[in-house]
Each structure stands twice: as C-alpha cells, then as structure tokens.
C-alpha cells in the first residue's frame, strides 16, 4: 500500500500527488511511468512519473481529471492509500547531448516532460521548452520548468499568457532563428501529430511520448499497440517514446477514442451520484 503524503492543486482539474513508493523512487528514470488502481473495483491507468525523492522514498504524479478513474485518484486526500501502484514501466528516455533541443509540451503533458528537460539539460543540451496551454489558468509547473530549461516560451491558444497561438507556432518561431537538433513532444495526441507533421517538413528528428490506453502495462494485453513505421509496437514495453515521424497518429487517435462513449456515460453516472 502506498500512502499519499502530499497533494497540490495546479489548476481547476490538475493535481499533484506525492506518494510513498520507495522501490519505484529508487529505480525510476526520466520517461518511466507507473500504473495506478484505486479501489478493489478500480481501473488500471498509466501515469508518467514527474519526480521522485530518494530520501523520502516518494514519487510525484500529476493527474488531470478526465474520467471516473482519474477523479477517484484526485479525490484521495493526504494520508489516504493508493491500493495498487506498480512501476517503473517502459523504457527510460534516451538521454544524449545532441545540441539544441525543443521540449514541446501541451497542457498536462508538461508534467512528464519536466524530468526529461532536466536530464537533457544535465547532459549538456540547450533545452528550449515550449509551455503550451489553452489558457493562462491551465499553465502548470512554470516555475520548475523555468528553473530546469535554458529558455522558455509560453504559448496560449487564447493569448491570455505568453504568446497567442499553438505549440506549433512556437516551434516555427524558434526554428526560424536557430538550428534545432531534436524536438521532444508530449501532450494530447492531436497536438503531437501537428508537431510531428511540422518537424517532418523541416527534417528535424522528433520523439513523441505516447499516452495510449493500457491495462496491465507489462506487455500482456496489447491494448496500447500502435503502428510505428508500419510495424505494430506496444507502447508499454517498446515505448513509450517513438520516432514521431513514423507513428501512425490517426490510428492512435482512433484507438484512444474506443471507450469514449462508455466513459462519458460512466462519468455522468458518477456525477449524478454526487
């Protein structure tokens, strides 16, 4: 059992939980994720590890309220226990000094991006982070990201903070003035697809961290499969990071929507019970 020792709210629907998990804290690296299940009848959901504290033996998870399972996790309080927490899963991010790196994160995707920014910077890269969100109140982790990055560019869809525009506008702005060697992107699938399309045009190697549906997270079920360069890959054991230019994002988007109707219904039932 894993005790929640701290809880912070970042925006209306985004929270951070600090959870006791000493073994995971010890062995996790940037890019790793965990599977969390709340309650005996709960669902297993994947979440990327944002940070860890070796002394305390804790890990930080950032969760956005999107459905029943994320809500159950968010509604837990300090002192409560998470029934099941397993990890670290997936391959860690490949960290290498390549030169200049853009870290293009959207919304809650900035959370898993933070440890990668730190590791890439530590490896000697110049890391320019694009912090993209729909609106100012959805910008998270600004302080930590500023501390970790070489430069930060904030983009909001509605222009309430930073520059007005999409993450892709931010990339275009940066690559018009300097040579970029690698783009890393984490965010909604539709955003990563747009980033990938843009960087492909400019021939900039791009890595996307995929957030597909998973059940076990250890390769057993294949729910997370994606086509990468025409081959079927499992995000949980082959990923979660892939060459974005080879990922079939349309197929991924379709698979992500498989349970949408059921989820909306479940969320409505859940709300009507409150």
């Amino acid at each position: 059992m894993n005790k929640i020792v701290d809880k912070k709210q970042f925006s209306e629907n985004v929270f951070q939980l600090t959870i006791e998990a000493p073994r995971i804290a010890k062995n996790r690296k940037a890019g790793h994720f965990v599977i969390v299940k709340v309650g005996e009848k709960g669902e297993r959901i994947p979440l990327t590890i944002v940070d860890s504290n070796l002394e305390q033996g804790t890990i930080d998870l950032i969760i956005q309220r999107v459905g029943v399972s994320s809500s159950k996790l968010i509604d837990l309080q300090i002192g409560d226990f998470v029934d099941d927490l397993v990890g670290p899963l997936g391959h860690a991010t490949h960290i290498e000094n390549v030169g200049t790196v853009i870290a293009a994160g959207g919304g809650v995707g900035l959370a898993p991006m933070l440890p990668i920014i730190r590791a890439m910077k530590e490896a000697g890269n110049k890391v320019i982070t694009i912090l993209a969100a729909r609106s100012k109140n959805l910008v998270i982790l600004e302080e930590q990201i500023r501390a970790a990055s070489s430069e930060v560019l904030i983009m909001t869809n509605d222009g309430t903070y930073g520059d007005k525009g999409l993450v892709t506008n931010g990339i275009e702005k940066i690559i018009s003035t300097e040579k970029v060697d690698l783009v890393l992107t984490i965010g909604p699938a539709i955003m990563m697809k747009a980033v990938s399309d843009l960087t492909q045009k400019h021939n900039i190697p791009t890595v996307a961290s995929l957030n597909t549906i998973m059940v076990d997270g250890t390769g057993m079920c294949g729910a997370c499969r994606v086509s990468v360069g025409g081959e079927t890959k499992f995000v949980c054991v082959d990923g979660p990071e892939f060459d974005a230019h080879k990922v079939n994002f349309d197929e991924m988007l379709s698979r992500l929507g498989a349970y949408k109707e059921i989820e909306i219904e479940a969320m409505n039932n859940c709300n009507s019970l409150k």
Partner: peptide, 29 residues
C-alpha cells in the same frame, strides 16, 4: 488489425476476468 474493436484474447479476457469489466460497480470498460 489495429482498428478499434480488435483485441488480443489476453486483453479481452483480462478486462473481463481480472478487471471485472461489464460487472456492476467495476470501472474498467
């Protein structure tokens, strides 16, 4: 084979047997 609605037997059985999908009160769809 990667269309939605195509499962591995492992996934289909795991959802139902292990996760209780389809049973009252269980969250896995």
């Amino acid at each position: 084979e990667n269309l939605t609605g195509v499962f591995s037997a492992n996934e289909y059985l795991t959802r139902i047997n292990l996760m209780g999908a389809g049973r009252e009160g269980y969250d896995t769809p």
